[in-house]
Computed example of a mutant assay.
Amino acid sequence: MKILIHYLLVIFLLQSSLLAHQNHAVVLQYHRFDEDRYPSTSISMELFTQQMQYLADNNYTVWPFSKTVKYLLEKKELPDKTVSITIDDGYRSVYTKAYPLLKKYKFPFTVFVNSAPVVHESVHYLTWDEMREMGKYGAEYANHTYSHQFLVRDGIKDPKNYKKHITKEIEMCEAKIEKELGAKVCKNPKILAYPFGEYDLKLMNLVKSLGYIGVAQNSGPISSESNFMALTRFPMSGGFGEMDQFRLKINTLPLPIKNVLLKDTLVNESNNPPSLTLTLKKPLKNLQCFTADGKKIAIQWLNNTTVTVQAQYSLEYPRNHYTCTAHAQGNAWYWYSHLWIVLE
């Protein structure tokens, strides 16, 4: 009898351990706070406060983005309900609006800095002293290039100088933030957020050769099986972070994908609308796909786990994406998003 009880206890503890850990996380992306002049990239402090309160009230584990990425790279288990908070560009409202609230909740956060406006002391951006102060209370910093240019499009226009130009943009930023912010800069691993969230195969390969993890802006959770040159995040600005959407998105699971046939993102006249073929690890008959404006996309099942997705109309400049979701369990949904860069 004692042996049986011991055996059941071991099974229970093992099951509890499995339930309490996961290999995926949700990453939130912000830009501006309470800057109504920029509705597509700003979130109200009222809504941001509700979001942070929800994370605190519902026992979410908020980790620095670099720590989350490192665990996933090393295929370590994450705590249940892991979330990371990222903020792009480094506008002043990060310090004046978001920082006091994040400090109050003791939530770590990651700021992707494009360093040129800081160097030139733009009043619209953070100062090095403000960033150093925030670094004492949970902030870490990562590369967003020096001058926040359209890297993919610039490379197409000037292929001869592509590698030199992109490398300079990345290395100038890295050198400056390391000099000013030291140990608060993400180094293990080094992380780069693509300006405007735009990347293609050529850029991903260059960024990888420079030793960086690449971060995108199209939506979806990340896992140990994600493409670490295009890690996805959920944008929270422009109406995408209302509380009903927020609650849904922070509980998403990575769509169980075995293979993506087309990994590039470029769309021109010859392939617009683009076609995307996904092979799933298991059948998901409730799969649905949508374009960025919420229009449903027709899908064609090639077999019970392989599906081709293609919009019914040409995608418009400058970018779009296909998002595919399926009900998982309870209130959770599987989620995957593929970026498309529409060329002129």
Rank of each mutant, 00 (worst) to 15 (best):
K104S: 09
Q217K: 07
T308E: 03
W340F: 13
P235V: 01
L181W: 11
L287G: 02
N320K: 12
V27C: 05
K136D: 04
M243D: 05
L253S: 13
Y146L: 03
S17P: 08
P64Q: 03
T41W: 02
G211C: 09
N268C: 04
Q329R: 15
A139L: 03
L287M: 13
I85Y: 05
I5F: 12
A142L: 10
V267K: 00
P195C: 06
L201Y: 06
L231M: 15
Q300N: 15
M1H: 11
E180H: 13
E74W: 00
W340G: 05
L343F: 08
R319Q: 03
M229H: 05
A98M: 07
K176Q: 11
S275N: 05
L72H: 15
T127Q: 01
Q245D: 14
D293I: 04
V207W: 00
W333A: 14
E225S: 04
A298L: 08
K81E: 06
Y313L: 06
A20H: 10
L8V: 07
S314D: 12
K249G: 11
L261F: 13
M204D: 02
A332N: 13
T325C: 08
E316A: 13
V123M: 09
T49H: 08
G182H: 01
E180Y: 05
E180I: 08
F65C: 13
L261A: 08
N304L: 10
G220T: 03
G197S: 07
D88V: 10
N271M: 06
K176H: 10
P79K: 07
H124V: 04
L101I: 15
K164N: 12
F112W: 02
Y334Q: 15
A139W: 01
F228W: 04
Y7V: 06
L280Y: 14
Y125S: 08
F48T: 14
Y336P: 11
V215W: 08
A328H: 15
M236S: 11
L302F: 10
P64L: 03
N272A: 05
V309S: 02
C186E: 12
H24Y: 14
T167A: 08
L8Q: 05
E77R: 14
L315Y: 03
D264P: 00
S237D: 14
N227I: 03
R247D: 04
H144R: 02
L181E: 09
S223W: 00
L9Y: 08
K184T: 01
M172P: 06
N59S: 14
Y99L: 09
T279I: 05
T308Q: 03
C173A: 15
L101F: 13
K2Q: 06
K208G: 01
S219T: 07
Y95S: 12
L192P: 05
A20E: 14
S84R: 00
F112A: 12
K258E: 15
Y71T: 13
V118R: 11
A139Y: 02
K157Y: 06
D129E: 11
